[in-house]
Simulated assay, not measured.
Amino acid sequence: MDFSQYESKSSQEIKEVISGLMKVGGMPNLVDFFPILRPLDPQGLASQGKVCVEKLFAIFDSIIDQRLQKRAVSSSYDIDLSTQNDVLDLLLDINFKDGHELSINDMKSLFMDLFVAGTDSISTTLEWAMTELIRNPKKLKITRFELMKCMHTKRETLNEHDIPQLPYLQAVIKETLRLHPPGPFLVPHQAIHDVEVKGFNVLKCAQILCNVWAIGRDPKIWSNPNAFMPERFLESKIDYKGQDFELIPFGAGRRSCPGLNIAHRELHTMLASLIYNFEWKLEENMRVEDLDMEEKFGLSLPKNIPLMAIPA
Rank of each mutant, 00 (worst) to 15 (best):
F3D: 09
S4I: 08
S8E: 07
S10N: 13
E16V: 11
I18D: 04
L21D: 08
G26N: 15
G26W: 06
N29P: 12
L30M: 15
D32E: 15
L37F: 04
P42A: 11
G44Y: 13
L45E: 07
K50I: 12
V51F: 11
C52A: 12
A72V: 11
S75L: 11
I79G: 07
L81S: 12
T83M: 07
D86P: 08
L90E: 09
L92D: 01
N95F: 09
N95K: 02
F96Y: 12
K97A: 15
D98W: 09
L110D: 13
I122W: 01
A129S: 04
M130L: 09
T131R: 03
I134R: 00
N136D: 07
N136W: 10
N136E: 00
N136I: 00
P137L: 01
K141Y: 06
M151V: 15
E156V: 09
E160R: 05
I163H: 01
Q165G: 09
K174Q: 03
L177R: 03
P181K: 01
P182L: 07
G183H: 12
F185M: 14
P188H: 11
Q190V: 13
H193T: 15
H193E: 15
D194G: 14
V195E: 12
C205F: 14
L209D: 13
L209W: 10
C210P: 07
W213N: 02
W213P: 07
G216D: 07
M229Y: 03
R232C: 02
K237L: 06
Y240G: 07
Y240I: 02
K241F: 00
E246S: 04
E246I: 05
P249M: 01
F250W: 04
F250D: 04
R254A: 02
C257T: 02
A263L: 05
H264R: 10
R265C: 06
H268M: 01
T269K: 03
M270N: 06
S273D: 02
Y276D: 06
F278G: 00
F278C: 02
L282Y: 02
V288Y: 04
E289Y: 02
S300F: 00
K303P: 00
N304G: 07
M308S: 15
P311N: 08
